[in-house]
Amino acid sequence: MADDDPEPFVVGQTALVVPVPEAESAVRVWRNRFDPVARAGVPAHVTVVFPFLPASRVDAGTCAVLDDMFGRHRSFDVRFEECGRFPGVLYLAPTPDAPFRRLTEAVVDRYPEAPPYGGKYEPHPHLTVAQGQDDTVLDEIETGLRPGLPFAARVPTVDLVVYSGTDWQHRASFSLR
């Protein structure tokens, strides 16, 4: 959910994320040490859109639109079998990733003013485990993760989270059908 900026979050920033509680036993120790998003209160997740709209623009009408939009998508099962990398980032790759891509596309179609990662990166579904580390550290983390793989997860919801200035707080959940 974050990038390489030293202060990546802004008060009132929002994100749409798919929580993956099934990942916690495999990734919690690593995320708590090496992912600032975890330390700021966000559970293991796959990002749908970050940043989304500013919190000041997310009202009951926006939530109703999101509820209807996500309710048109089926819940789905996913597996996390292998790790992947971006520069300085270690993540778990979801299989299949197409359902996550469809959720992102639906949000962007309805809210083109909120492109994923501000349009800076092409969206690529992933569950971040560590970021801002060199390859040696990422290699060690990956070795430590392997015994916890693979695992399966069910995706029944998308959550809206808001940054308070100190942590990310859950604001709403939207059920997939």
Rank of each mutant, 00 (worst) to 15 (best):
M1W: 03
A2G: 10
D4Y: 13
D5P: 07
P8Y: 11
P8D: 07
F9V: 01
F9K: 00
F9Q: 01
V10H: 13
V10P: 00
V11C: 05
V11R: 09
Q13I: 00
A15C: 01
L16S: 02
V18T: 02
P19C: 00
P21N: 05
E22C: 07
E22N: 08
A23Q: 01
A23E: 01
A23D: 01
E24F: 11
V27I: 11
V29N: 08
V29Q: 13
N32K: 15
R33Y: 01
R33C: 13
F34D: 07
D35Y: 05
A38V: 01
A40P: 00
V42M: 11
P43V: 04
P43Y: 03
V46E: 07
V48Y: 02
V49N: 13
F50P: 00
P54Q: 03
A55T: 01
A55C: 04
S56D: 15
S56E: 12
R57S: 10
D59W: 07
A60Q: 13
T62I: 13
C63Y: 00
L66V: 00
D68H: 09
M69P: 06
G71W: 06
R72C: 12
F76Q: 02
F76G: 06
F80E: 05
E81T: 14
R85H: 07
R85V: 06
F86A: 08
V89T: 15
L90W: 00
Y91A: 10
Y91D: 11
Y91Q: 05
P94F: 06
P96E: 08
D97M: 11
D97K: 15
P99L: 10
P99M: 05
P99D: 04
P99T: 07
R101Q: 11
R101D: 14
T104W: 14
T104M: 12
V107W: 04
V108F: 08
V108H: 09
V108I: 13
D109V: 03
R110M: 12
Y111C: 06
P112H: 12
P112F: 13
E113S: 09
P115G: 07
P116I: 02
P116H: 15
P116N: 14
G118E: 10
G119A: 11
G119M: 14
Y121Q: 08
E122Q: 12
P123Q: 10
H124E: 11
H124R: 14
P125T: 05
L127R: 06
V129E: 09
Q131P: 05
Q131T: 13
Q133A: 13
D134S: 07
D135F: 12
T136Q: 11
V137R: 03
I141H: 02
E142Y: 04
T143S: 09
G144L: 03
P147M: 06
P147C: 03
G148Y: 04
G148V: 03
G148K: 09
P150R: 10
F151I: 04
F151Q: 06
F151P: 03
A152K: 08
A153P: 04
R154D: 15
T157F: 03
D159S: 14
D159W: 11
D159P: 00
D159V: 00
L160Y: 01
V162L: 06
V162Y: 00
S164A: 09
T166W: 03
T166M: 08
D167P: 01
D167I: 01
D167Y: 07
H170Y: 14
R171M: 14
A172F: 13
S173Y: 01
S173A: 15
S175N: 12
S175T: 06
